[in-house]
Amino acid sequence: MSVQPAARLRRKDLVGIDPLSAGEIQLILDTADQMREIAARPIKKVPALRGKTVVNLFMEASTRTRFSFEVAEKRLSADSLSFSAAASSVSKGETLVDTALNLEAMQPDFIVIRHVHAGAPHQLARILKSSVINAGDGAHEHPTQALLDALTVRLHRGTLEGQVVAIVGDLQHSRVVRSNVLLLSRMGAKVRVAAPASMVPVGIESLGCEVHRRIEDAIAGADVVMMLRIQLERQGRMNFPTVREYYDFFALTPERLKLARKDCLVMHPGPMNRGVEIDSRVADGPQSVILEQVTNGVAVRMAVLYLLAGGHGEPTAD
């Protein structure tokens, strides 16, 4: 028995997976599933958010997520503005709250924020009237990534319930893993995580996952393997001796993939470090759905924008 979708998303903001019920997650995924079709039309645009303004406030580098939000906004006919920290008053010392209040003074309807500090979207959600969408906050949450991963799994498997999902890589620095574990366990999947001991945050099992020390144990019989990026730029103080050693013990190679279910899906949130956490033969192999994840990301972000636009106010009769 799959989860019944909620009737509506009665929220102003999407700050994380944590506040969402299983029914709300199901509603977002069902809506995203229908949004996928718009990309196949001759005119890839619908008027649903005509006249709405979206500010993409990216205070940390991002290409894929920012483009994905921008495409989603354009497909829904919203007007979007993108902000990059380097070329703004942030470099002149303005605080995040002041930047956000100044942007809100121009009456946007949505603020999509990516920030290096955990909790930045939550702070803005409390003080702003606009809907705030978290596009990644520090090592905390990245809700739309988890939703697009879930949609990708659901499209291949029909359901999330009972799926065995292994997540392998830098658990310490990853916001993707937190949102994914929360979402998958809430939807009835069984989640296993694996990383070198130096990259396993204390208490991660309390999110609802089994913790393994060897990749082989995590992926044995798995339905889905999600590889996480080794954040080489954050490894100034390396959590493992060498990249080569990481590959030897934790990379997803064709040999290791044989331990999983025969048609196990291979996923990666990108950007990939080929030859570090994932072997090119796997990344480009027949079980890889990495580029489908990117396609589904646009549909998920369209669904979130669409549903949040109706999140305020009282429900009305059909």
Binding site: P5, A7, R8, L9, L27, D30, T31, Q34, M35, E37, I38, V46, P47, A48, L49, R50, G51, K52, L76, Y306, L307, A309, G310, H312, G313, E314, P315, T316, D318
Partner: peptide
């Protein structure tokens, strides 16, 4: 996604559930 009874023309509104096209 093309309806005129949701969105800026109504103070209170609810997004209709999407179905397949």
């Amino acid at each position: 996604l093309y309806r005129d009874d949701v969105g800026p023309w109504r103070a209170a509104h609810q997004q209709p559930v999407l179905r397949a096209t």
